[in-house]
Simulated scan of single mutants.
Amino acid sequence: MPVSDDSAAASGWKGFWNPGGWWKAVLITVVYAAMYQGIGWVNATLFSGVVDEKNLFGDPTSVLIGVALPILVAGGLTLLFVWSVGWLPTIFARQPIAGRPWMWIAVVLVLIPIVIRLVATNWSAYSMQVVLAVLLLGLCIGFAEELITRGIGVNLLRRGGYSERVVMLLSSLLFALLHSTNIITGQSPLLVLITVVYTFGFGAMMYLSMRVTGSLVWAMLLHAATDPTTILATGGIDSTGGAAGDAGLLTIASLFNYAYILLALIAIFLVKGRVGSSRVRRASDRSGGDRE
């Protein structure tokens, strides 16, 4: 039976991505970063009269339109890509390799500063509408950034046959690469460098959390709780604003950033195992994904 042009195109598209590989993981991350920056520019142009750039967290409209909308659109397009290659069942299924008990340390290290920041936040500085908008922003960030790095990135690396040690290392570096684009927005090179180092450590925590909980969804939720509590406690994004909360507690919470980096370095030597491309494909078959 002859193959239709549409079927051939779909087969070629999926056939390109299914074998995986590190350079494809880099490619899709760079495309996502460029897409997000482009969406942000268009968004800022279209809604320049609606968003208060000088006080993004002063009203819910600025939060939702100015910050959350570009991330939501980028996340939606990323989800569309996952659907187009037939990886939805694979990425959101239980992890094909079990975590180890020591990996729960990563979950604890992420949860403790979240609680500290909740206590430290100057809640009187925000309206309930702004708080809810920031929480929604956190969900958008957690979903989009985890989907592109721990979802697509990890899947591509596993399909490429890399060991889990390499998967953790490279997916964390990809997560850090995403945040290196902050330099385009005018941040100082030093602040961008600090952010990149921190996000590498935090990315490793998300990988370990995904492994030990067995699901990408839990990493998304942990990430979704980290960003909004940081924003509300400090009063800004990657900076401290006028609505910042208790300085002493925030200092304690910030110390966990060093713990992330330290555990990430230790984990490089502790993480073992290999899923391998064939096992990823079999898992995809069992969960209803594409057969290769």
Rank of each mutant, 00 (worst) to 15 (best):
V3P: 06
V3G: 00
V3D: 06
S4P: 00
D6C: 05
D6L: 15
G12T: 05
G12R: 01
K14H: 04
P19K: 00
W22F: 15
W23M: 15
W23L: 15
K24H: 08
A25T: 06
V26D: 11
L27F: 13
L27Y: 05
V31G: 13
Y32T: 08
N43L: 01
A44M: 06
A44P: 09
F47Y: 12
S48N: 10
V50E: 12
V51P: 02
D52I: 11
F57M: 12
G58E: 11
P60K: 11
P60G: 02
V63M: 06
L64E: 02
G66I: 02
V67E: 09
L69K: 02
P70R: 00
I71W: 03
L72V: 13
T78P: 07
T78L: 13
F81C: 12
W87V: 01
P89I: 01
P89W: 05
F92A: 00
R94F: 08
Q95K: 04
P96T: 05
G99W: 02
V110M: 09
I114Q: 10
R117Q: 14
S124C: 10
S127F: 06
M128R: 08
V130E: 03
V134Q: 09
L135E: 07
L139H: 00
L139P: 04
C140Y: 04
A144F: 10
I148T: 10
I152E: 09
G153A: 07
Y162W: 15
E164V: 08
V166F: 05
V167H: 01
L169K: 12
S172E: 11
L174M: 07
A176V: 12
L177Y: 08
I183A: 01
I184L: 15
G186P: 01
Q187Y: 04
L191R: 14
V192I: 11
L193N: 10
I194D: 01
V197W: 00
Y198W: 15
T199H: 13
T199V: 15
M205E: 03
L208G: 04
L208V: 09
R211E: 08
G214K: 01
S215T: 14
S215W: 12
V217D: 05
V217F: 13
A219C: 05
L221Y: 01
A224H: 02
A225W: 08
A225S: 03
D227C: 13
P228T: 02
P228Y: 03
T230D: 06
I231D: 09
A233W: 07
A233N: 11
G235H: 10
I237F: 14
T240P: 15
T240A: 14
G241E: 15
A244N: 14
A244S: 14
A244R: 08
D246N: 14
A247Y: 07
G248E: 06
G248T: 05
T251D: 11
L255N: 07
N257E: 12
Y258S: 13
I261T: 04
A264R: 02
L265G: 11
L265W: 07
L265A: 14
I266D: 10
I268G: 04
K272V: 06
G276W: 00
G276I: 08
V280Q: 11
A283Y: 04
S284D: 06
S287V: 14
S287P: 13
G289L: 00
D290W: 12
